[in-house]
Amino acid sequence: MPNALLTFEGVHTHIGPYHILHGVDFAVPEGEVTMLLGRNGAGKTTALRSLMGLWKPNQGRITFAGRDISKLPTPEIARLGIAYVPETMGIFAALTVRENLLLATGPAGFQQDRLDTVLALFPVLGQKFAQAAGGLSGGQKQMLAISRAIIEERRLLVVDEPTKGLAPAVILHLIEAFQKLKAARTTILLVEQNFEMARALGDTVAVMEDGRIVHRGDMAALAADTGLQERLLGLSLAAHQ
């Protein structure tokens, strides 16, 4: 197994008075796609927000490239080379598509080759480059959010439920885009309820339930075992297939 780029060890997170994560353990191997699955309310988003420092874990360690990042402020975590696409996408509606992307570039601005690659992946963004992002459709906003995460070279891409609420054709487009990123050996941590997407992309998988990891293994093994799927993911799986 390749080296882990990111690890959670016994991570507990509280949101206000609520104890949400109860000791989360899993690892994201370098150069692979790790799926984080689980039913609604299992704690997937909370785990990603803890990683980004948006909720502060109050116990346990989150290490990135060998360094404990669980107490760092959010901007410092991001600067280590982590790109985050939140469940809510985090698109700046009042800014143009171009400005949304520009925010994620270094001080020198766009590198033409990376911009070309991104716009080749999602040509519609090129057509709407100078328009306010608030006017994009839901699918286009998700494409913009993903583009913003890859417009600069990063070490880890963290994406929270990119297919949520999108039409099947758009989901296929996103799967294709992620397959290209996977082929380029980008390290990705992907939360998803859409099992098709998980099956198509995942190398390894961790499944959450009630703020804990209840299963870890190869994605292919979970994909082949419908009994296990039913037990771990239950109705949410059937509803999304």
Binding site: M52, P75, A78, G90, A94, L103
Partner: peptide, 10 residues
């Protein structure tokens, strides 16, 4: 518009 996302961008 969204302080949290700006921080998540570094």
């Amino acid at each position: 518009e969204n302080r949290e996302m700006v921080e998540a961008l570094g």
